[in-house]
Design a protein around this nucleic acid. Structure first.
Lengths: 260, 260
DNA sequence: CAGTGGTCTAGACCACTTC
DNA sequence: AAGTGGTCTAGACCACTGA
């Protein structure tokens, strides 16, 4: 039997109605404009977790874009972990309250972003022969000169981390003043070094008397350790760091995506 | 003046000569076949760090593929950090001896892959009300039933980690026998749960008497801690883990890529 | 079965780098 | 100026999902 009313049927999961539009006059790539708008819609809650995005073909048509361009936008958000695509089903907003993936950032920037007003005390800033641990990590010849920087990072006047960095000495100068007013990575960026990747090792151990003293922890406290080798966009190793953090005040958070 | 010899000029960075070929009869996607061959060439040293890959157009022509397909293969390797692309320059193999990015794997699989013959002792395997810490992490209603598993992970008979896991109790059964013969993630995968992402927090602290006793460490030793919430491909939280590792025997290693 | 994303093609124009 | 990757288009066919 036909129903007596002609109420329009509503799909179970109505694709969200969004005000999406791209500006073809803008120098910003179209796929990037779209990705940014979708990301904003997710963060603002206009696209609720679990909701379907509507299929790529229609989305492309409604925006006046080609399907590959729309796919490029969606792919970038899938890579970020904001969306999930399943063949035969559609594209959904991930249910999770999404946390940002761990990025290759400096501790200084992380703390500043969290509103913790980081400050830095430079304890050492010299050049000298590289320890074997450093030449091995950076792939430098033995008995090579490196810049050595020891810093204490504080938030609200409280010690947070003791940072020891080693850089090839011909790479750039490290004025103590600039090291205290910003982070090491910001300084490197200003000198045209663009970081590309880093290899990190995180562990724990009891602090030495010196470390605990600097950090204001009781002797022998458990500390969080991190060693990092950073590489620039040409793949050259540009920095080795061996850092200790007050475990009572600091943890590493990050998000992992399955390597699909 | 013209040179008197007609020796053919050789580009500075001759694109590496590789035996690449795709099999169009294979069900494996063409871009994936190409990516795998390039990756193998890099690992085998046929493509040396810094060498140029040759431009996409020629590569596509020589393989009988379209340019977008070749780009998709190259992009997947750029995402893995094996290649770097620079406009106006070309595609280069990264100089770094590449380490694998940290993946969402189980400790069991990691240890097995390293040939360390992991074994597991299940200390607890029950269902009960979830602690507040767990309901909050998994987004479950309060006073909800969860499966609780406590395990001791050993390699060569030596304790390595003490693992506490909590799972929504309606998700699957956790037979003690299976937990001892494989990892938790393998067990979940066999039950159709496909992991998609995880949020992790890594820290350090002194171990409790119980923890140090189980791990065979002196009382009060520094331990490495990790909390993890895992999500499946629908974005549902499926597992919470609170683990402690012997810091003297275990570290986390991972690779970070700049979010370009 | 209809609808979805996954893969693939053969072009095009542009921006950037290097010489 | 020449060569590179970056972006974009308008189609096509296939594999998988779910009703």
């Amino acid at each position: 039997m036909m129903p007596s009313r002609y109420a329009p049927s509503v799909p179970k999961h109505e694709p969200a109605q969004l005000r999406l539009a791209v500006d073809r006059a803008s120098p910003v790539p179209l796929y990037f404009q779209l990705a940014r708008q979708l990301e904003a819609a997710i963060e603002d809650g206009e696209l609720t977790p679990g909701s379907l995005l509507g299929n790529e073909i229609e989305l492309a048509a409604s925006l006046g874009l080609s399907r590959p361009t729309v796919r490029q936008a969606i792919r970038s958000l899938v890579d970020k972990g904001l969306l999930v695509r399943r063949r035969g089903v559609g594209t959904q907003v991930v249910h999770t309250g999404v946390a940002r993936p761990m990025e290759l950032t400096s501790l200084y920037d992380d703390l500043a972003a969290a509103g913790l007003h980081p400050t830095t005390r430079v304890l050492h800033n010299t050049r000298g022969p590289a320890p074997a641990e450093v030449t091995a990590a950076l792939g430098l010849p033995e008995s090579c000169q490196v810049s050595v920087v020891h810093r204490l990072r504080l938030t609200r006047g409280e010690p947070m981390a003791y940072l020891r960095n080693y850089l090839p000495s011909d790479l750039l100068d490290l004025p103590t003043g600039e090291l205290e007013s910003s982070g090491l990575y910001a300084l490197m960026r200003r000198h045209g070094i663009t970081l590309h990747s880093a290899q990190q090792t995180v562990g724990a151990r009891s602090g030495t008397a010196e470390e605990c003293g600097l950090l204001g922890e009781p002797a022998g406290s458990a500390l969080l350790t991190m060693r990092r080798v950073s590489y620039d966009d040409r793949g050259r190793p540009v920095e080795y760091g061996a850092h200790v953090y007050r475990a009572s005040r600091y943890t590493f958070e990050f998000r992992l995506l399955v390597h699909g």
